[in-house]
């Protein structure tokens, strides 16, 4: 029982991170048909912005602000204007391939111009742990989970309640009608890119103290987010949350009770099973585009 608790706590914390990354994934897909193969690298990078700012001598909070702004500008605005916009009219595939190239570009740039070594990263959640049900639950896990869930709830409220959020929904569901209604579709799409950049930057801050800042750390994360997005439902924000958490739990339970050598395979079987029997995802609805 105690073991199970440990596994669940750990799985939830990891799953919440997957969810954060997966949400951005689905957002980009819905508003601009962008399948971003560099999403994992987008999570890896903001930590390096923060580290670079720290190296200049800024205090941690200022470095975090700098990292956030850099992420919004580079991974949000620049990514959209320089890469996505010119390619969008060519269709889904060339853009997807271009993001694969982007992922190589980001990874190797960090390796060449920063370091190939893993770097320690300060935690924004206090260290230490909480004694609960006879085991130690790290504050880090709790903090990661709470912050990730809070971010998701805020995002959902924003999309459902605020005027801008509803305009974004409309722009995603039917850009043509949205345009006729006078919604600035282009700006709405830009907003989703900014939201994605903010989410990956948050994920980066939360996960790097555990994963460490390293040029390769986006690889597994990007794949996990991709799987989480499909398992949950590629066209639903809450799908990404369900997908992320399910994936985190399944990974830990499978490694314990099935096989450690094949722990990487279980999520993939889950992915294939979902595609075969519930292609719209666990909580998605068939062929519907909403944010």
């Amino acid at each position: 029982m105690l073991n199970l608790l440990n596994l669940v706590v750990s799985g939830l914390a990891t799953g919440a991170i997957y969810a954060l990354v997966a949400i951005g994934f689905t957002l980009l897909w819905q508003t601009s048909q962008t399948i971003n193969f560099a999403q994992g690298e987008f999570v890896m990078l903001p930590a390096f912005f923060v580290l670079a700012a720290l190296n200049v001598g800024l205090p941690f909070w200022a470095a975090v602000v700098v990292g956030m702004i850099a992420a919004l500008v580079l991974l949000g605005v620049t990514f959209k204007l320089v890469l996505v916009d010119p390619m969008l009219r060519h269709g889904v595939l060339p853009l997807a391939i271009a993001t694969m190239a982007l992922s190589i570009f980001l990874k190797d740039s960090v390796k060449e111009f920063y370091s190939a070594e893993a770097q320690a990263f300060p935690s924004i959640v206090p260290e230490g742990s909480l004694a609960l049900f006879g085991t130690q639950i790290p504050l880090q896990s709790i903090g990661v989970f709470v912050l990730a869930v809070a971010a998701v709830v805020v995002l959902q409220q924003f999309l459902a309640r605020s005027s801008t959020g509803r305009q974004m929904q409309a722009a995603a569901q039917n850009p043509t009608v949205a345009r006729i209604l006078g919604i600035p579709v282009e700006r709405m799409i830009l907003y989703t890119f900014l939201i994605n950049a903010a989410l990956v930057a948050l994920a980066s801050l939360l996960i790097t103290p555990i994963y460490l800042a390293k040029f390769t750390s986006g690889e597994t994360l990007g794949l996990a987010a991709f799987i989480a997005a499909i398992v949950g439902g590629f066209n639903q924000v809450r799908g990404a949350i369900v997908g992320g958490v399910v994936l985190g739990l399944v990974d830990n339970l499978a490694a314990t009770y099935v096989s450690t050598q094949y722990r990487g395979a279980i999520p993939l079987f889950l992915l294939i099973a979902v595609i075969l029997w519930r292609p719209q995802g666990l909580v998605g609805r068939a062929e519907e585009r909403t944010v």
Binding site: N3, N6, L7, V9, S10, G11, T14, I207, I210, Y211, T216, S217, E219, T220, G248, D251, N252, L253, A255, T256, T260, Q261, R263, G264
Partner: peptide, 20 residues
């Protein structure tokens, strides 16, 4: 005999297996 993956972040499952 616990195999782990390069880059693995979560060792909760391995710890449980060691304890068992």
């Amino acid at each position: 005999d616990l195999s782990t993956e390069a880059g693995q972040a979560d060792f909760a499952a391995d710890a449980v297996k060691v304890k068992n």
